[in-house]
Design a protein around this nucleic acid. Structure first.
Lengths: 206, 206
DNA sequence: TCCCGTCTCAACCGTTCGATGGAGGCGCGG
DNA sequence: CCGCGCCTCCATCGAACGGTTGAGACGGGA
């Protein structure tokens, strides 16, 4: 019994590469390709693939996480495997939360991709060996969630804005901005705006 | 007469994709694949490809720019086309300086890649339509070059380090660090450390 | 030779930042 | 209803930062 697969990636070259790699394997069949998340959902409804291989970054429009959520809302829902170049905690964990069956780094060997797809088709979750531990640690030691407003401040912070500037952008007083900053610093365990931006980048919060 | 091509990319999937796309075209022949810059140079010496398609980011070891320089030092030198996901000024310009015949964004259509290779094989330079203008502007309006020491400071700055911390890392006094910072601010046309990091990122200086 | 760029350091001063310790309002769920 | 989290704001204060000016040392190039 062959496994039907839908590819979702905004790079034509990557799609071709995946198709070439997967179709060389017995039991795998690429039934469709999509360049955007929107396209992916439409195709998945018609083609009913068992597994969707989805890039985390999809240029404009829906990102991989939103696409995952939309795909998982279908009935029957395909298993979704996330493809990614970098392994940022926040994004990958977000994808898992959205219902992804696992994730793959793009630089793995073809055999590993095939293996992961077969597992996903069986309903298994496939997490990279290193990530499994991190997920567990993430549950045990949850990353502090920033509030909406704190995210706003963080984004401006990353552009190098000062307190006064942020206050104007967000239409609040400087005191409020400082208050948010204190909370951000506390949650990220840092003591300066520059370091906050640095660890926020590391954790994929930007 | 067929054009011999060497692929250099650390992602097996991308290599497969490029191979699939290129071999579907008449007159193009992929004669080899390399996952690292070092490997690429060795293979290029033996296979003597007319064109090398080289990713800008190559995981560990030599990056795309260093690889380009090494390839161009061969005799006869292959034409080098740079592949990249993001279009950061500094890196692309660096690759051009190192002797690249042009660059391609990874999300272009296969036809554009084939076209670029054919041009490169003829000795043409192929710059993206948008970049050509930027190169010209870059010549007219050269980006201020940071000195070695200023780069050191900038790197530490990006990690969120304070002046005292940087001084200790670089084994100089705080006054010296501040001096470098003033020069960096001036060259990047900013007025704060956070903003310096921001524009440095935009310009690919990190 | 002298100039110029780079790296090094110093002192001064106004501004911004980060820490602290509050306070009130608002919405949501127990 | 009451608590809790979030957002908003205030005042104060020491530490850090940013701008300025000036200067000595070293090396390469005109």
């Amino acid at each position: 019994m062959t496994i039907d697969i839908l590819l979702v990636d905004d790079h034509p070259v990557v799609r071709s590469g995946l198709r070439a790699v997967l179709e060389a394997s017995e039991g795998l069949s690429v039934v469709g390709e999509a360049a955007t998340g929107e396209e992916a959902v439409v195709l998945a409804e018609h083609l009913r693939p068992a597994v969707v291989l989805c890039d985390l970054r999809l240029g404009a429009g829906m990102d991989g996480i939103a696409t995952t959520a939309a795909l998982r809302a279908l009935a029957p829902a395909p298993a979704v495997l996330i493809l990614t170049t970098f392994d940022r905690d926040a994004e990958i964990l977000g994808a898992i939360e959205a219902g992804a069956a696992g994730y793959l780094l793009k630089d793995v060997a073809p055999a590993a991709i095939i293996d992961a797809i077969q597992r996903a088709a069986r309903g298994d979750t496939v997490l990279g060996p290193d990530l499994a531990a991190r997920v567990i640690q993430g549950i045990r030691n949850p990353l502090p969630r920033l509030t909406e407003r704190e995210h706003d401040v963080l984004r401006l912070l990353a552009t190098g804005a000062g307190n006064r500037e942020m206050a104007k952008s967000l239409l609040v007083s400087e005191a409020t901005v400082k208050s948010h900053l204190v909370h951000i610093f506390s949650k990220l365990d840092v003591d300066s705006r520059s370091r906050a931006v640095h660890v926020a980048r590391q954790r994929g919060l930007l």
